[in-house]
Structure formats: structure tokens, C-alpha cells
């Protein structure tokens, strides 16, 4: 692994950021990378990172909790940027299962496609998948914002508790099954809605919310082309007449 690069401070107070710290995973391992990214002073000493030759390795850049910027050139395996806090992680490639799972804050951007359970249980921050996301995108989401440029697979936003899921393409079967309070926006078709998920009126505040999310994600789409889905809240307290829906 390349040595940590430090910003150059000049006598006149000018600070110039050094080159990003380069990590070649062909010659280093994920454990050393994560450990370096967890260094307490990483945000001051090495705020930018470039990771090359990820070759689908799992658990790249997990558990970050500082304001660092990490770019990964290539495809990543499971749980890339898992539990991210504060950091910005960009993957110039596709991501395996559970990208940005349980993210708390910060931004994760997958330039390609994401496999299952992208953004699962995430509490905050912004996850952008520029391509499509597979099944269970945003499963049990707890406050994260997820913007998907393409389609999402079945059971997306299953049990979604809070946060917003924006799908610019189509959604698969059982969208928003057993949904709590997460808000879902889909521009394309929805194959089917899950239990207790219903279409809801798009009002001005929703258009504004969508516009903000699309801008934050850097995705060019017309907010008025989206439909909104949310919880009918019929399963919030057990009722015997709904037993078959559980």
C-alpha cells in the first residue's frame, strides 16, 4: 500500500491536497485497506483514496466513519461501503450483495449495477445506483435515501421503515411489501405491489422532494413522471381479518 499522503501546507497558509492515496488490491489485502481507512486521523492525513484492482473482493471500504473520499476502480463483491458513516465511496463498476448495507450517513455511488439488498437496513445518507439494482433493494430501510437510475428487482423496500427509494426505471414484484413509513417513487412500471403497499397521490411537496433527491443523485429525470407508493398502514396492529396478509 502506498504511504499515507499528507496535504502540503505552504508558508502563506495555502493548502494543497496531495495525490490520493493509491491502494492496489492486486498487491495488498482488504484488511490492510480497511484498517488504514479506520485510522483516527485519516480525514486529515489522507482524505482521498483510490483503490485499483478490486477484482470483486468483498468488504471493501466497510465501517468508514470519517469524512474521506474513496474511489474504487472496478467491480466490488459483497458489502462494499457497508455501515458507511460520513465517507463518500464511489465504485466505478458493479457491486455485489449488500452495497452500503446499514449505511448511517455519507454518500455511496455505484456507477454500474448493484446486486441484491443494496442499501439494506440503511439509516441515513445517500445511495445512488446509476445502473439497476437487483432484488430487495432498500430492504428494511430505516431512513436512507436510495436513487436507482435503472430498475429494481422483486421485494424492494420490503418492510421499509423510513427514508425514500426513487426508481427511475421499473420495479419488480411485491414492491414495498409490509411497508412501514418509507416513501417510494417509481417512474416506470411496477410489476406488483406487496402486502399493504398502495399508490398514493403525488402532491407538490412530493415533487419538490423528488426534485431534490434527483439533483442530489445527479440524475436527470422529470419528477412529474414518477408515481408515489406508501403504506396503507392496515397491518400496523394485528387484526384477525388480515391474518392471510401476514
Amino acid at each position: 500500500m502506498a504511504a499515507l499522503s499528507t496535504p502540503l501546507e505552504f508558508a502563506d497558509g495555502r493548502v494543497e491536497l496531495a495525490e490520493p492515496t493509491l491502494v492496489d488490491l492486486a498487491g495488498s489485502d482488504v484488511r490492510a485497506l480497511n484498517s488504514a481507512l479506520h485510522a483516527v486521523d485519516v480525514a486529515e492525513k489522507a482524505p482521498t483514496w483510490r483503490v485499483v484492482n478490486p477484482d470483486g473482493r468483498h468488504n471493501i471500504a466497510v465501517g468508514l466513519d470519517a469524512d474521506v473520499d474513496v474511489v474504487v476502480d472496478g467491480h466490488v463483491g459483497y458489502y462494499c461501503a457497508g455501515m458507511n458513516k460520513a465517507a463518500t465511496v464511489t465504485v466505478n463498476g458493479n457491486a455485489g450483495v449488500g452495497a452500503a448495507e446499514n449505511m448511517m450517513s455519507g454518500t455511496v455511488r455505484i456507477r454500474g449495477n448493484a446486486s441484491q439488498s443494496a442499501g439494506a437496513t440503511a439509516h441515513g445518507g445517500l445511495l445512488v445506483v446509476e445502473g439497476s439494482a437487483a432484488a430487495r433493494c432498500g430492504i428494511s430501510m430505516k431512513g436512507v435515501d436510495i436513487v436507482v437510475g435503472g430498475d429494481v428487482g422483486h421485494m424492494s423496500a420490503f418492510m421499509g421503515q423510513a427514508g425514500r427509494l426513487v426508481v427511475c426505471g421499473d420495479a419488480g414484484d411485491a414492491l414495498g411489501d409490509s411497508l412501514y413509513e418509507a416513501r417510494l417513487y417509481v417512474a416506470g412500471s411496477v410489476k406488483s405491489l406487496g402486502a399493504d403497499c398502495v399508490e398514493k397521490e403525488v402532491r407538490a411537496e412530493h415533487l419538490a422532494e423528488l426534485a431534490g433527491l434527483l439533483t442530489a443523485a445527479g440524475i436527470d429525470a422529470d419528477p412529474s413522471s414518477f408515481r408515489r407508493y406508501g403504506s396503507a398502514r392496515r397491518l400496523y396492529n394485528f387484526h384477525v381479518d388480515n391474518a392471510s396478509a401476514y
Partner: peptide, 29 residues
């Protein structure tokens, strides 16, 4: 992160892994 007074249901399966091969990666994470 739930509304007050709702019956809280917890899933029986983990949301981001299924079999033992996945569990190995999860434990690593």
C-alpha cells in the same frame, strides 16, 4: 425507527445474506 404503538414485526431472515457461504462473508465484514 418505527411509529409509536404499532406491532413491531421482526423479519426471520437476515436482509442481506442467505446461506452459510454468505454468512462467512458477513462475519468477515
Amino acid at each position: 425507527t418505527l411509529p409509536m404503538g404499532v406491532d413491531q414485526r421482526s423479519a426471520c431472515r437476515h436482509p442481506d445474506w442467505t446461506g452459510p457461504d454468505d454468512l462467512e462473508i458477513k462475519i468477515r465484514e
